[in-house]
Amino acid sequence: MRRRPNPKIYLVTGIILLSVIAVSFIVGLFWTPYGINATDPAAKLTAPSLQHLFGTDNLGRDVFSRCLAASRYTILVSFAGVAFALVLGTAAGLFAGYFGGILDRIIMVLSNSIMCFPGILLALMAVAVFGPSLYNVIWALGLVFAPTYARVYRSGTIELSSRDYILQAKIMKVRPGRIMFIHIFPNLMSQILPAVITGLANMTLSESGMSYLGLGVQPPAASYGKMLADAQSYITAAPWLIIFPTLMLVFYILGLYFISEWVRTTYGGGRA
């Protein structure tokens, strides 16, 4: 007999994975076994041991401490970036979908042209011009992600606009702003929620890529992407330098995917 997987499995796995990150985030804020940038010339590239749970890197820095500390930037960039993208995308999508016509055309052409810069290219461009800093990374990635949300809101708004209750509101001459944000917006929650959670995960992928290129989170702050870039010369000599930061990233991203999958299957809503 065939069974559909129980959506609760997604939720439970997601929560377990994310709690690992949440614990490292909270612990990392207050305590790390060693200083984040404290070097120990006597203990370079040592394998994981009881002294150094995740081993040490080429400068003798404790990987475990750095993994704890790096989670805060991963979380900060993903949440702040998605929040920025969401504000921009929501407004653009609601206006485009509700008013249609020329405004819709303009917004869609703008968002399409943003999407024409493949991957993180637009964000790289912004960082090249304005310099690599945490805030530039956040708004630049937010800009890259905004069209995704604009599309979800636009199609949702177009769909809802033909519903009788929106027609009713138009007949009652409710102001367009009110129709958009009070009448339509709450009804798109179930569609936007999975997109927001998936967005957090994708934002993390992008941020780690930028940090890997040295254009994301800047030293002295620790970030998983930068840790992996530093480890590149020691892939075979010190695999733990790659495995642990990667695991941290995978736990966070996979946890988010599972939660969004759970939201999607439980509350219906849009597709990926």
Partner: peptide
């Protein structure tokens, strides 16, 4: 598929290089 989805491509590259060399 879910797991593959969650690994950044550059990290995956390093892991594969590790696998291939080791």
């Amino acid at each position: 598929g879910h797991v593959l989805f969650a690994v950044p491509a550059f990290a995956l590259s390093m892991l594969l290089i590790l696998l291939f060399t080791k």
